[in-house]
Amino acid sequence: MPTPHFTVWYNTRCPVCDAGIDWQRNKLLALVRAGTIEFRDINEQPDALARFGASLDDIRRRLHAIDEAGRLVVGADVAIALWLITPGEGWLAALFGNRAALPFTRFFYDRFADLLFAWNKRCGRW
Rank of each mutant, 00 (worst) to 15 (best):
Asp58Cys: 05
Val78Met: 08
Leu84His: 13
Pro103Ile: 07
Arg13Pro: 00
Leu115Ile: 11
Asp77Met: 05
Trp83Ile: 01
Val32Pro: 02
Arg61Val: 02
Leu82Ser: 01
Asn98His: 06
Glu44Arg: 14
Phe104Trp: 14
Ile37Glu: 03
Asp67Thr: 04
Pro15Gly: 01
Phe112Arg: 14
Ala48Thr: 08
Phe108Asn: 13
Pro87Asp: 11
Val8His: 01
Pro4Phe: 03
Ala93His: 03
Val8Thr: 06
Arg33Trp: 09
Ala76Tyr: 02
Cys17Lys: 02
Ala30Arg: 13
Asp114Ala: 13
Arg25Asn: 10
Ala100Ser: 11
Glu89Trp: 12
Ile85Cys: 03
Leu72Trp: 06
Lys27Ala: 11
Ala34Asn: 10
Ala50Arg: 14
Ile59Ser: 01
Pro103Lys: 10
Phe96Asn: 02
Asp58Ser: 06
Ala54Glu: 14
Leu102Arg: 13
Asp58Leu: 07
Tyr10Asp: 04
Phe6Val: 03
Thr7Leu: 08
Lys27Pro: 00
Ala48Ile: 08
Pro46His: 08
Pro2Arg: 14
Leu92Glu: 11
Trp9Asp: 02
Ile37His: 03
Trp91Cys: 07
Ala34Cys: 09
Ala34Trp: 08
Leu49Gln: 02
Trp83Ala: 07
Phe112Met: 15
Ala93Ser: 11
Thr86Met: 11
Ile59Leu: 10
Gly97Ser: 09
Pro15Ser: 10
Leu116Cys: 11
Gly97Gln: 08
Lys27Thr: 04
Ala48Tyr: 07
Thr3Glu: 15
Ala113His: 03
Arg122Ser: 09
Val78Gly: 01
Gln24Gly: 02
Asn98Trp: 05
Phe52Lys: 02
Ala50Asp: 14
Leu28Lys: 01
Val8Leu: 12
Thr86Leu: 04
Leu95Ile: 11
Thr105Ile: 05
Ile21Pro: 00
Lys27Asp: 08
Glu68Met: 08
Trp119Gly: 00
Leu102Lys: 11
Thr105Gly: 04
Gly88Val: 06
Tyr10His: 07
His5Thr: 07
Phe39Cys: 06
Thr12Gly: 03
Thr3Tyr: 08
His64Tyr: 05
Ala94Gly: 06
Gly35Trp: 05
Gly124Cys: 08
Phe117Leu: 10
Ala100Gln: 12
Ala81Leu: 10
Gly88Asp: 10
His64Asn: 09
Ile85Met: 14
Asp18Gln: 13
Ala48Gly: 05
Leu56Gln: 06
Phe52Tyr: 12
Ala30Glu: 15
Trp126Gln: 14
Asp22Asn: 14
Leu115Asn: 13
Arg13Asp: 12
Lys121Pro: 00
Val78Arg: 02
Gly75Asp: 10
Gly35Pro: 00
Ile80Gly: 01
Asp77Asn: 07
His5Gly: 13
Ala30Gly: 04
Cys17Phe: 05
Glu89Val: 01
Asp57Thr: 07
Ile21Asp: 03
Ala101Pro: 01
Pro15Ala: 08
Thr36Ala: 10
Ser55Pro: 02
Arg125Thr: 02
Asp18Lys: 12
Leu29Ser: 13
Tyr10Gln: 07
Pro87Trp: 04
Tyr10Glu: 09
Asp77Tyr: 01
Thr12Trp: 04
Val16Lys: 12
Cys123Gln: 15
Cys17Val: 05
Trp23Gln: 14
Asp41Gln: 09
Ile66Gly: 00
Asp22Phe: 01
Phe117Ser: 06
Phe96Lys: 04
Phe112Pro: 00
Val74Gln: 04
Trp126His: 12
Arg60Gln: 13
Cys17Tyr: 01
Ala118Gln: 13
Ala30Phe: 08
Glu44Cys: 03
Ala100Lys: 12
Trp83Gly: 00
Ala100His: 11
Cys14Ala: 06
